[in-house]
Nucleic acid binder design. Structure first.
Lengths: 336, 336
DNA sequence: CTGTTAGCGCTTTCAC
DNA sequence: GTGAAAGCGCTAACAG
């Protein structure tokens, strides 16, 4: 049942070296030989042992995918795109999640377990500390960041400041003046994190319109629906004058919509809500959003990583476009 | 930077065999020796090469996770639970998705690429053909199915018939008599698939109440929000007398809610909708559902798989409970 | 409790 | 275009 390369070599009347070459499509194999080897290998159901091949060649044909969650829209979408791309090139995707605990510090990324295990690393939306990034880089394999990455490293992203300005400006055009921004955990303060960039974009848009953007209007909650619901409830209670909320993600925006319902506020008559993402289910509640292509970012990042693994060069920063999708959660500011 | 087992052995003044034993926590190593080896390995940042270890031992400490999608609630949740559990036991999760194309046949699962690559396989919600399952079994590693699996194999599931009856009975109790069932692709006809079991549960509940469950009320759509929206639109147009829809999943139920909105039907006054899942975002539209614990199923399945890999025995079928969560998409049947 | 010695199943020079 | 042979870096008997 389980054949080795020698069985194939013997059956084909060639050496194991030739079988290895033929199966991997290397040059310097006579077409007739190649065909024969391929046929026999197929017939025997032979597939090279990945461990043996890795040990001998030093390459694993495996890409590690590091992510904090998989059951969030952006992450699941990116991973789906990346996995599909890797598989198409006969690479495996090794999934490593790093839970970010509510309130507590997240488990630190341990690079050493990845040593000699992967040919490259895809870091999805995980704002890492400098030393962690250094450890990962120390593995000596190419790194590509998606959604969130430090300067100087290969990064696939969107223009977070622009997306945030777009969202905020949409609210401003609707006549809102008390526009709050709901963002992620306050511990996430790396200046290059998307959350931080979006805060900057919000401030810029507010400033450009001559509107105040005080600290009380910058609310930090946990980065999901329940977290946002809770944070938004607090905000809307203490600042009933707020007529619009720009949430840093669609999931957070959904939490805001739920909080509004909890408090008996009508959306968008009493409160306008906008997010960033283009979440699949945003349509369900008519969520206005600044949409991005998450699956495509996964595809692109994986493609670039594969290029790097093959020794190619890729652009340091790839910026994906976003577009404003106006639906039913934003409307004209209440009069008075 | 990158040390081998010999470096550690030399520094500790022992043989490589002892280093190997000490690092893996095997017995027959003096505590003092073990401590010394551990300290030196740590100091050197030594981690055994997985390829070399696999080649020598025949074990990979890797579990393959097979799934059709990752960006669907059930799948993402199960995978998240499983990955966390595997990681806790120092096992890696290798992600293999098998896209199910709309309309077309899905890509067939190719077991051979998994040969000698994994110590076990977790199949998540992928209704496989008998020969595919045979191929996977032929790999000689333990298999655990989650959500959907053939009789005679280790399976973590919920009682699909019961869940469907619970959902249908809820609608019947509200006075509905024309209750349609929206389910997945018609190609998915394996008698043991969850979709098929849910159809059976719906029919049973209808029959028990003396209500008709004709074929026209059993609607097949693609297994996601847009697919259900489309299928439900067709149904509601051709059968305006239908006052309630039981959808096979929450995502499909969301599609029904959207279809109702498209057609100007009020939910629940004109149409009641119920799903199965307990999707995170069901709350957003007050979706009534029969909830299950997807993350826990992933945890349990991974735990059992690890047991099997270690040579243990596990129950063939593990059935998770469900519970009816009544929210706002179901209400009394319209009078007349 | 520890060391010695074979491999595990490939890939990769280096010859021919 | 093909083969022989030397590893890749560990683990697993088997001794002692």
């Amino acid at each position: 049942m389980s054949h080795g390369i020698e069985d194939v070599a013997r059956a084909a009347g060639v050496s194991t070296a030739t079988v290895s070459r033929a199966l991997r499509g290397l040059p310097n194999v006579a077409p007739s030989t190649r065909d024969r080897v391929l046929a026999i290998a197929h017939q025997l159901g032979y597939v090279a042992s990945p461990s043996a091949a890795s040990l001998a060649s030093g390459r694993t044909r495996t890409i590690g995918v590091l992510t904090p969650w998989i059951s969030h829209w952006f992450f699941a979408s990116v991973i789906e795109g990346a996995e599909r791309t890797l598989r198409a090139s006969d690479f495996d995707a090794l999934l490593h999640t790093f839970e970010i605990f509510r309130g507590g510090p997240r488990r630190v990324v341990d690079a050493s377990v990845l040593r000699r295990r992967v040919d490259g690393l895809l870091v999805v939306g995980l704002p890492l500390a400098d030393d962690e990034i250094g450890d990962l880089a120390g593995l000596g394999v190419p790194l590509v960041f998606v959604g969130s990455g430090p300067p100087g490293r290969v990064l696939v992203r969107l223009d977070d400041q622009l997306a945030a300005r777009t969202a905020t400006e949409h609210l401003i055009e609707l006549g809102h003046t008390r526009i709050a921004h709901l963002t992620g955990d306050p511990g996430d303060v790396l200046p290059w994190s998307p959350a931080e960039q979006r805060v900057v974009g919000w401030r810029e848009a507010m400033a450009a319109a001559g509107l105040p953007a005080p600290k009380e209007l910058e609310v930090h909650g946990y980065f999901d629906v329940p977290g946002a619901r809770e944070a938004a409830t607090g905000l809307l209670r203490s600042r009933p004058d707020v007529s619009a909320v720009f949430a840093s993600s669609d999931e957070m925006a959904m939490g805001v919509v739920l909080a509004a319902a909890d408090l008996g506020l009508r959306v968008p008559q009493d409160l306008s809500v906008i997010g960033i993402d283009g979440h699949d289910l945003g349509d369900l509640i008519g969520l206005t959003t600044v949409a991005q292509h998450a699956v495509e970012q996964g595809v692109r990042a994986a493609t670039m990583l594969l290029d790097l693994v093959a020794g190619g060069v890729v652009p340091l920063i790839t910026t994906f476009p976003t577009r404003l999708v106006i639906r039913r959660t934003t409307g004209a500011a209440p009069v008075g």
